[in-house]
Each structure stands twice: as structure tokens, then as C-alpha cells.
């Protein structure tokens, strides 16, 4: 909890004495009083949600290609990534430092764990997206004289974009919620708001930090999701043309 402690809560007492902690007024004054700190957490939360998905995508592209290219790779790879995804996030956070030789409270453990999750999710997405590229199209590309690498980037990957972006949407939204869990082990992000909410609710429930945490997490998820949708649309003008 060292990171959380670093943010000394100056007006804690003032909040505790407020009676109707569930009123909108209490919520807004809590936000305004803690604006700078909350925005810092939101910013950290954003990075922690986005960067691991990008890392995951970079890893998933070659792995998904392998699973697609060599059919004997597909089943074991799907089993491994599936199992990985079922490991509870909190356990993964705790397991990673000893596994990769990091300090138990290293700030890297959370991004590493999230990158693993994202990779696990996206390997299947990439493999299935590539599998959905019509065989005729691939055969035509080969016959025309595309070499394999060029064909992957110019034909197969662009056609797989809709499936991959659908996976990215799931991965990024899932990350927003998993990152919050990391707040409870002291990583700087919106999860700290829940931590604080629990701490301040020892005698009577104190809602403002919890509500604020939920609202900001949901807003963040919606914005990131919308960004992925926008990316998808800019990469696939051909799909919209057809729907007309």
C-alpha cells in the first residue's frame, strides 16, 4: 500500500463527518477536493489499460500467424492461452515478480500481467481472423506473385482487421477493469478510489470515492472502446461501402 500512502488524504476528516455521503453533492465535492490526485490516477489507469493491449497485439500477431500457418500449433496454443486467461488477475500479479525476477512491488508487474492476458486473448482472435480470410483470395494473391510476408501485411492482415478489432475492444475493456484490481495491491490507478472507499467505510458506508471510481472506469472504457471502433472504421472503408 506504499503508493496509496504517498497520497496523504488531507481532508479525510471532513468527508467522514458528512452525513449523506450518497448525495450527488457529496460526490462532486469529493471529486473537486481530490481533482489533481484523481486525474493522475485516471491518466495512469489509461496507460495501464492501453499499453498492454498494444504489447499483446504485437506478440499475438506472430503467434496467431504461427497457429494459423501450422495447424498442429493451434490446439496447444489455444489451450495454453485459455488456461492463462483463467488464472485470477490478483494471483498473476503476485506470481509475476518471482517468476521474472522483479521486486515484489515493482511497477512493472501489472503491465506484464496485463500484457499476458491481452496476448492470451488476442492470439485466438488473430488466428481466427486470419482463418476467416477466404482461401480463394489467398490463392489469388499467391498466384499473382505476392511473397508470403508481403501477402500477410497487404492481404491477409487487412482482411482480418474487423475480427482483430473486435478482439481489441474486448481486451481493452477487460483491461480497464483488471487494472482497477491492481489498485487494491497498491498500484497507482483508479482502483485506489475503491481502496479508499472501503477504508473510509469502517463505521458507516462512505460512497463518493467508490462511485467516482465506477464512473471514471466506465467512462474510460467507453472512450477507449470508441477509439478502437474509430480505428476499425478508418481501416475498413470497404466494409461500410458494402453495407450501403
Amino acid at each position: 500500500m506504499s503508493t496509496a500512502a504517498a497520497y496523504a488524504v488531507p481532508d479525510l476528516a471532513a468527508h467522514v463527518v458528512q452525513a449523506a455521503s450518497s448525495s450527488p453533492g457529496a460526490f462532486f465535492s469529493y471529486f473537486l477536493d481530490n481533482r489533481a490526485r484523481t486525474l493522475d490516477w485516471l491518466w495512469a489507469h489509461t496507460w495501464l489499460s492501453v499499453v498492454p493491449v498494444l504489447v499483446g497485439l504485437l506478440l499475438a500477431l506472430p503467434l496467431g500467424w504461427l497457429a494459423r500457418r501450422y495447424s498442429f500449433v493451434y490446439p496447444p496454443m489455444m489451450s495454453i492461452t485459455g488456461v492463462l486467461y483463467t488464472v485470477p488477475s490478483i494471483a498473476l500479479f503476485v506470481l509475476i515478480p518471482p517468476l521474472v525476477g522483479l521486486d515484489p512491488l515493482s511497477p512493472l508487474q501489472v503491465p506484464i500481467a496485463l500484457s499476458l492476458y491481452s496476448t492470451a486473448l488476442l492470439v485466438r482472435v488473430v488466428a481466427d481472423g486470419l482463418a476467416a480470410v477466404p482461401q480463394d483470395t489467398i490463392a489469388a494473391a499467391t498466384a499473382i506473385g505476392f511473397r508470403p510476408v508481403n501477402r500477410f501485411f497487404k492481404v491477409e492482415l487487412p482482411i482480418a482487421v474487423p475480427v482483430i478489432t473486435a478482439g481489441l475492444r474486448v481486451a481493452i475493456v477487460a483491461n480497464v477493469s483488471i487494472v482497477a484490481v491492481a489498485g487494491t495491491i497498491g498500484m497507482t490507478n483508479l482502483g485506489l478510489l475503491f481502496d479508499e472507499g472501503f477504508k473510509l467505510s469502517t463505521d458507516t458506508p462512505y460512497y463518493p470515492p467508490i462511485v467516482l471510481g465506477i464512473v471514471l472506469c466506465v467512462l474510460l472504457a467507453l472512450v477507449l472502446d470508441a477509439l478502437v471502433v474509430a480505428l476499425d472504421r478508418s481501416l475498413t472503408p470497404w466494409r461500410r461501402a458494402v453495407r450501403r
Binding site: 480463394d136 483470395t137 489469388a140 494473391a141 498466384a143 511473397r147 470497404w238
Partner: peptide
């Protein structure tokens, strides 16, 4: 790939690039 670029190839369902 050099050989293929000298040879036109047409298949049953055209195999056009949808994108």
C-alpha cells in the same frame, strides 16, 4: 514469385481482394 508475375491466373470465384 517472378514466374507468377509473368503468368495471369483466374480462379472460379475470382478471388478478388475484398479490401
Amino acid at each position: 514469385h517472378e514466374l507468377r508475375r509473368k503468368i495471369g491466373y483466374v480462379i472460379q470465384h475470382a478471388g478478388l481482394f475484398p479490401h
